Simulated scan of single mutants.
Amino acid sequence: MSERDLESFERWLEPLIEKLSPGERRQLARQIARENRISQRERIKAQRNPDGSAYQPRSALRGQSGSIRRKAMFSKLRSARYLTMSAGPDAAVVRFMGRVASIARVHQLGLRDRVAPGGPTVRYPQRELLGFSRADRERIRDNLIDHLT
């Protein structure tokens, strides 16, 4: 989702949300954050970017026995321990916590980082772990409409 799309979505939501009491906004934000965390977790599990494209596969990393690891990327990052949510009357937030937040940031933005402490520096391909897909925006809109009616 581009920043312009997100801004227009916010402009559409803002007047509707302002009509709610702080308690109702907190309840709505918590529901949206919970569903958004589930959506992000499932999308990460499917190895997909918000636009539906597949993550760029990792390069062939060889283990000690010489075999190529074929496990899915980010299996621990999507757990509730690291992918957390918080909600208040003014915001609903889904984010990564702890050390994994920096790992997620490197992949989200496609930055350079060390493979291991003291190891070589590598530019990681951009893999959008968090983001809004069209289905996410529609679900948020539907939740808001259901809450208002």
Rank of each mutant, 00 (worst) to 15 (best):
S86N: 12
R95L: 05
L77N: 04
Q108T: 10
P57M: 07
F96Y: 13
R112Q: 10
G88N: 12
H147R: 10
I68C: 01
K71W: 02
Y124G: 01
S79T: 15
E138V: 05
E138F: 00
N49I: 11
H107C: 03
V94K: 12
K71C: 00
E24K: 14
E10Q: 09
I103E: 05
G98Q: 04
D136M: 11
T84Y: 04
G88H: 05
R137E: 11
R141W: 03
G98M: 04
R25Q: 05
L28D: 12
Q126G: 00
R105P: 02
R99I: 00
K71P: 01
L28G: 09
L111P: 05
S67Q: 13
P15E: 06
G52Y: 06
F132S: 11
L61H: 15
R141A: 11
R37T: 08
L28R: 10
K71V: 01
I44N: 00
S75F: 09
Q47N: 01
A92Y: 07
R81P: 04
R134A: 14
R41I: 00
R58K: 12
A101D: 06
A135P: 02
L83M: 08
G88F: 04
M97N: 13
L13P: 07
A116V: 10
V106L: 08
D5K: 08
R78F: 01
L148R: 10
P22T: 11
N143V: 03
L28C: 06
M73S: 13
S65N: 15
G52T: 07
Y82C: 05
G88T: 15
R78W: 04
I38Q: 14
A54F: 06
M73L: 15
I17P: 01
S39T: 13
D51F: 05
I68K: 13
N143Q: 15
P89K: 14
I17G: 03
L6P: 00
E138H: 01
R78Q: 13
N49Q: 13
F74Y: 10
S53L: 02
I140M: 15
G119A: 05
F9M: 08
R99V: 03
A72P: 01
R48W: 04
R112V: 08
H107P: 06
N143A: 15
G110F: 04
I68N: 08
L28N: 09
A54V: 02
A92F: 07
L28Q: 10
V106E: 08
R141Y: 00
L130E: 08
V94I: 14
Q47A: 06
S21D: 07
R114T: 00
R48C: 06
S102A: 14
E10C: 03
P89C: 06
R37V: 06
L130C: 11
E7V: 05
S79M: 05
S102L: 11
S79R: 12
V115K: 11
R43S: 13
M97S: 15
L129N: 08
G23N: 13
R139S: 12
D51C: 04
L83W: 09
S67K: 11
G118N: 11
P15F: 04
A72L: 09
R58T: 03
R105T: 09
R134Y: 07
V122P: 02
E128S: 08
A104N: 05
S133V: 06
R41L: 01
Q40W: 09
R81D: 13
V122N: 02
L16R: 14
N36R: 06
I145P: 03
D146V: 01
S67M: 00
A80G: 04
I44Y: 00
S75Q: 14
S53M: 02
P125A: 10
I17S: 02
